[in-house]
């Protein structure tokens, strides 16, 4: 066995004990990146391992994410969609209002208004009922608190 390999074996012993420095570890990397011929078969594991870890250092260097760009643009998209939706709804509303004013007969307008008032009246009625209900709760609360 060559002097080289003896030295490497000593280094590997240190390596297994996790006592090698980064510099010594790169020595091992260098040694095993060249050595292929006439290598002691007891060193095959180290040859494979150091090749693997050297290889891994180069892996996925093309990995790229730009999450912030992506995040921004998707927020931008939703904002844009919301803006367009709002615009469409508003213009439809304006259009229908115009129609109402210009084309509907007075009677129809009256009927609509009446309907609207009825609706409001209904709501008021309901609100009143709720208030009565609230009073009940109030009373029972008072009972409980006493």
């Amino acid at each position: 066995m060559s002097e080289d390999q003896k030295h490497i074996k000593q280094l590997l012993q240190k390596y297994l004990e996790a006592k090698t420095s980064l510099e010594e570890e790169s020595q091992l990397h260098r040694f095993f990146s060249q050595a292929e011929q006439r290598l002691d078969s007891r060193l095959y594991w180290a040859r494979d391992l150091f090749k693997y870890s050297s290889n891994e250092k180069q892996q996925h260097s093309d990995f790229e994410i730009s999450p912030i760009e992506k995040g921004r643009s998707s927020i931008g998209f939703y904002r844009m969609a919301a803006a367009i939706a709002a615009l469409v709804v508003t213009s439809l509303g304006v259009y229908r209002l115009e129609e109402n004013y210009q084309e509907r007969k007075m009677q129809e307008a009256y009927a609509e208004t009446r309907k609207a008032f009825m609706l409001i009246a209904d709501q008021l009625q309901m609100a009143q009922e709720q208030t009565v209900y609230l009073d009940y709760i109030d009373q029972s609360m008072n009972k409980l608190l006493k």
Binding site: Y15, L16, A18, R42, Y44, W45, A46, L49
Partner: peptide, 21 residues
């Protein structure tokens, strides 16, 4: 703890690869 863990890992890797040879 780091050294012990690293040493265990390296030895286990060595054993497993050597076994295959």
């Amino acid at each position: 703890a780091v050294r012990v863990t690293l040493s265990r890992a390296r030895k286990e890797i060595r054993n497993q690869i050597a076994k295959q040879y």
